[in-house]
Computed example of a mutant assay.
Amino acid sequence: MEKRRVQCTGGSSFSITLPKKWVEAHRIREKDSVTVLVRGTGSLIVQPPSEGVSVRRSISIDGLTEEEIRREIIALYIAGVEEAEITGRTVTKEARLAVRGSTEMVMGFEVIEESSRSIIVRNMISPEKFSFRNGIERMFSTTRSMFQDAIGAFAAQERTIAQDVIERDFDVDKLYFLILRHNHTLLQERISEEQMGVSLSAARYYAHIAVQLERIADHSVKVSQVVIENHPKLTPRLVRLLQALPRSLLPLLDEAAEFTRTVDKKRAHRILNTIQKSAGDIRPLYDEVIRHGLAGAVIVADSMDRFRGYIANMAEATIDHSFIEPGRGAESACYGVPLLIHSEYVKQISEDQHGCRAAPLWGHPPSCAR
């Protein structure tokens, strides 16, 4: 770190000199223009002319499976890459399909050029036109409908509705990836808080909320996959318990949408208190599942329990964010409430045994409650 003395020039302008090593490293010459970004913390960021150039990356897909190709491209997208060149000794038909399939999973990535040995993908969405708040609100809306329909599909054993829930998960994933992408772009200081219209701390807060919503959507998919793949038999009492779940759980999600929008810590505290007091509400569902040995239903019971944990994560993050100065950034932490897992039953019946695990999603960071 270097300290520079502020000088007054012309009676009204203030200036500082730039470090010589920095100037030489970026080959800056007299009369070149540099970019000055003002952070929410009050600090200034000086970027050399080259920083304005879009971020480009090149990856080789030789030896990679189709799944690995998808993971790589999603990772490039989340990292904020503007243009990616995918190369190989020979780009096979399967590899091309994997690349195109990956671009369909995100917003803005499009294939602009192809040859026998390379594919070039470019981002077409400007960060300045993106609203974190609107993205989060859309995630709340879609996730809510997915969760409600997944429970309804399980109770009624409606495979058509279950399949629709699974397909809607792609919409949630697209928003999730986009929020992570713009959060990383802001963290890398390739765009200013002013240009994005959001502070760095707020962007990190929204990214944390997006993770929780994506997890809820994933569990809605898991419940729907049980309907499609296992078609489990249900007792009348279990059906009644399932039908009552949305009435008790959806208001928690609605309240989370509101305290997230307003960063209202009082509401967040109320939700946490409610969740802690109602920790045993899910137990009748577990008891019914265990009593009748309903294998597929254990996934539903576990997902309902985790749903509460994800809401608690959002409430804790909101309380934290309410005390953080704009631009400082929030410390990532794993919060939640104890999950009511019946270990003796889970030992007998695992998700793997019944094929109920949700399809892998690429580029996801680890989750404390997953």
Score class of each variant (00 low, 15 high):
residue 218 D to R: 12
residue 167 E to D: 11
residue 163 Q to W: 04
residue 345 Y to T: 07
residue 218 D to M: 09
residue 308 R to L: 10
residue 8 C to V: 14
residue 237 R to C: 01
residue 315 A to S: 03
residue 148 Q to A: 13
residue 216 I to G: 04
residue 12 S to I: 13
residue 118 S to D: 04
residue 83 E to V: 02
residue 257 A to Y: 08
residue 125 I to Y: 08
residue 310 Y to D: 02
residue 176 Y to L: 13
residue 135 G to E: 02
residue 248 S to Y: 10
residue 33 S to V: 15
residue 358 A to S: 13
residue 238 L to M: 09
residue 305 D to I: 03
residue 348 Q to G: 08
residue 320 D to H: 11
residue 100 R to L: 11
residue 126 S to T: 14
residue 32 D to G: 07
residue 100 R to H: 12
residue 209 I to Q: 04
residue 149 D to Q: 14
residue 312 A to Y: 04
residue 361 L to H: 10
residue 117 R to Y: 09
residue 316 E to I: 06
residue 279 A to F: 08
residue 162 A to E: 02
residue 238 L to P: 01
residue 330 A to Q: 12
residue 266 K to G: 07
residue 247 R to A: 13
residue 180 L to R: 15
residue 124 M to P: 03
residue 210 A to P: 04
residue 338 P to S: 12
residue 336 G to D: 09
residue 123 N to P: 04
residue 244 A to I: 03
residue 246 P to E: 14
residue 88 G to A: 15
residue 41 T to F: 05
residue 167 E to S: 13
residue 266 K to I: 10
residue 120 I to F: 05
residue 342 H to Y: 15
residue 210 A to L: 03
residue 335 Y to G: 07
residue 224 S to W: 01
residue 141 S to V: 10
residue 115 S to F: 04
residue 97 L to Q: 12
residue 48 P to Q: 00
residue 300 V to K: 04
residue 301 A to C: 07
residue 156 A to E: 14
residue 367 S to L: 11
residue 130 F to K: 03
residue 41 T to N: 12
residue 69 I to E: 03
residue 203 A to D: 08
residue 179 I to Y: 11
residue 276 Q to N: 14
residue 179 I to Q: 05
residue 63 G to A: 04
residue 322 S to W: 02
residue 76 L to Y: 04
residue 29 R to F: 13
residue 364 H to R: 14
